[in-house]
Design a protein around this nucleic acid. Structure first.
Lengths: 128, 128
DNA sequence: AAAATAATGAAAATAATTCTCAAAATGATA
DNA sequence: TATCATTTTGAGAATTATTTTCATTATTTT
């Protein structure tokens, strides 16, 4: 049988997959013409349930979604708000820790907050 | 001079500190009588800025706050929604990874999602 | 005590997300 | 293909969490 994914949901998936970045529902909506708000939210929900997309809680007002590719952590700049990916995989370590507590991990997310490289450079433009 | 913390903000801090758990603004509101909604939000903001409290993004609709104590990660059950603390400190590792990317970490959070111990036990009540 | 400053609460305003429901699209059946 | 059933859609209403406004009250300073 397999799972059915509607045309619009496929478009949403395509956008997330192509842009290779973190997008809010609104970002997706802006990238697709002629598709309703509710449909985008429904598609994102559906894709998340299917495990094709991940809904991240990065501490922003709105949720952000990303196409599931490799494992990485996120860095959110407290100054400019940019989100950067950082290559590193702690999922094994997290899974182990959880196992010790008796919990079974499906997926995990690591988010670091601080000042990103660009903002640091702006702070100290050039030294004397 | 020092920093000024209002009476109400101190009450909010006390609740978070005493309950030793993750609370939404509404939870805090319910724990304190005769204090307005806006005041609680303002207190939580203020305490967060002062670094006494942390605003966590656990993927729930509302933000949750916790009194900053030791370093630990969070486990959010996808079934019952309970949040469990797990002792483990990956902050050094996260800081190093970020440094390699040029970013400066202020704090980091690790959240695991899956089925918690209690829900697993409910699934398999007792074996034959 | 008078003046200046900061904190408060009630209610309105915002913003993100979800819900409702009738219409359109799709798929299955005869 | 015509018919019936199921799913998906979008417009807008409804919800929910959070923020803002603003007049009042409390606190500190002078």
């Amino acid at each position: 049988m397999g799972v059915r994914i509607s045309q619009h949901a496929r478009s949403v998936l395509a956008v997330l997959s192509e842009k290779r970045c973190h997008m809010t529902a609104e970002d997706v909506l802006d990238s697709l013409q002629g598709i309703g708000t509710a449909t985008v939210y429904r598609a994102l929900d559906h894709l998340t349930e299917l495990g094709l997309v991940r809904r991240l809680a990065l501490g922003k007002k709105s949720a952000v979604y990303e196409y599931i590719r490799d494992q990485h952590m996120h860095f959110v700049c407290s100054r400019c708000g940019m989100v950067h990916d950082m290559p590193a995989d702690v999922s094994g370590m997290v899974r182990e820790t959880a196992k010790c507590c008796g919990h079974q991990v499906e997926w995990s997310e690591v988010t670091a907050h601080g000042i990103c490289r660009d903002c640091q450079n702006e702070e100290a433009p050039e030294e004397a």
